[in-house]
Simulated scan of single mutants.
Amino acid sequence: MTKADIVNEIAEKTGMSKPEVLNVVEAFMASVKNSLTNGENVYLRGFGSFIVKTRAQKTARNISKNTTIIVPEHKIPAFKPAKTFTISVKK
Rank of each mutant, 00 (worst) to 15 (best):
M1D: 07
M1T: 11
T2K: 14
K3E: 07
K3Q: 11
N8C: 00
N8I: 02
E9S: 15
A11P: 06
A11L: 05
E12G: 09
T14V: 13
M16I: 03
M16N: 11
K18P: 04
P19F: 04
E20T: 12
V21D: 03
V24S: 02
V25C: 06
E26Q: 07
E26F: 00
A27R: 06
A27T: 14
A27C: 07
M29C: 11
M29E: 14
A30Y: 01
S31Q: 10
K33H: 11
K33S: 13
N34G: 13
L36I: 09
T37I: 08
T37H: 08
T37L: 10
N38Q: 12
E40K: 14
N41F: 07
N41W: 08
N41E: 14
Y43R: 15
L44W: 04
L44N: 05
F47W: 13
F47P: 09
G48M: 09
G48H: 12
G48N: 12
S49N: 15
S49G: 05
S49F: 05
F50R: 10
F50G: 05
K53D: 11
K53N: 15
R55G: 05
R55H: 12
Q57L: 04
K58W: 05
K58H: 13
A60C: 05
N62T: 04
N66R: 06
T67K: 04
I69K: 09
I69L: 15
P72F: 02
H74I: 02
H74D: 05
K75A: 02
K75V: 00
P77G: 09
A78R: 05
A78N: 12
P81D: 12
P81C: 11
P81A: 12
A82E: 09
A82M: 03
K83W: 00
K83M: 00
K83H: 04
T84I: 12
T84F: 03
T86R: 14
S88T: 14
V89G: 07
V89Q: 07
K90M: 04
K91G: 13
K91R: 10
K91L: 02
